[in-house]
Write a protein that binds this DNA or RNA. Structure first.
Lengths: 156, 156
DNA sequence: TATTGTTATACTCTATAACTATA
DNA sequence: TATAGTTATAGAGTATAACAATA
């Protein structure tokens, strides 16, 4: 009881991450709009890049969306000719999802545009600091949501 | 045209930050609940820590909230005896806001609880990497939202 | 009976506009 | 007339539940 712990040696992680993420989304929404994409549309294209996905539910989960919410997004992307979406012959309940050539091109152009602007922000960091930040962020972003949420348990 | 740029040398910043921030909020909501706080209630206490704030609008802006949304939050915090909220004698339109002793104690306890769990997540990083990550994040989080959003302009 | 996709509904969060009281 | 705070309303985003088709 004699000593008092220093309060707030650092700001809360969430208090820094959440506004930063919100600002980045506000930045990216109009940029994606110029490529004819919404935020979720772009997320779907990213989730489909390089790999065919067998069900819409799996895609939804992989991008952190609700399965009911991707439906309208997939409708739009299909109307725009950016994705293929066909019933799986082996299980006609499922829909095989993949990028069209045009979808791959649109995604690549949008991503280049996005990352160019993100790089302008990252330029505020020193070269080594930037590399360390990105490496650490990739590590943390790869931690499954469930494991993070589980840290809320009392005893942890 | 002979060479092709490598695609996606790194994941998008926003694509990593947004889910991570969402997971952290999912972690922290029940933790704060045990201290009798909501997320916005905690944000308000954090915004008031160490300093009196002269108007509710200023407080709202400083924590990235709408001025209409903090009202109910302030009502609850006042009912719970965590904040003082009195008309400014010099300008009775304004409300002087500050933490009560109890509010300061509740905030400190909640923050210690939050950061202990955040530290469990950060333990996935090496010691030097963790320090670099936090330092870089503080730098990026201090960039005003307007400057980030302005990166959307065509020519940037 | 279980699963995929879909639709419809309800709920939460957030933003907008209109009102009061002070200045 | 302008500003701080408040209230009420509308809108967007999200989650929940029920349904049809297929297995």
């Amino acid at each position: 009881m004699a000593t008092r712990k220093p309060v707030a040696s650092r700001p809360d992680l969430a208090a820094m991450l959440a506004p930063l993420a919100r600002s980045l989304m506000a930045l990216e929404t109009p940029v994606l709009g110029r490529h004819g994409l919404t935020m979720w549309g772009y997320a779907v294209l990213s989730g489909l890049r390089g790999q065919e996905v067998r069900t819409q539910s799996a895609l939804a989960e992989s991008i952190g969306a609700d399965k009911t919410r991707v439906i309208a997004v997939l409708d739009d992307l299909q109307d725009d000719g950016l994705i293929n979406r066909q019933p799986d012959p082996a299980d006609r309940r499922a829909r095989l999802l993949s990028l069209t050539d045009r979808g791959a091109r649109v995604h690549a152009a949008a991503q280049a545009d996005i990352q160019r602007r993100e790089n302008a922000l990252l330029a505020r960091l020193g070269r080594a600091e930037r590399a360390a930040f990105l490496s650490a962020l990739e590590t943390l972003a790869s931690v499954p949501r469930d494991e993070i949420v589980a840290l809320a348990e009392h005893g942890s």
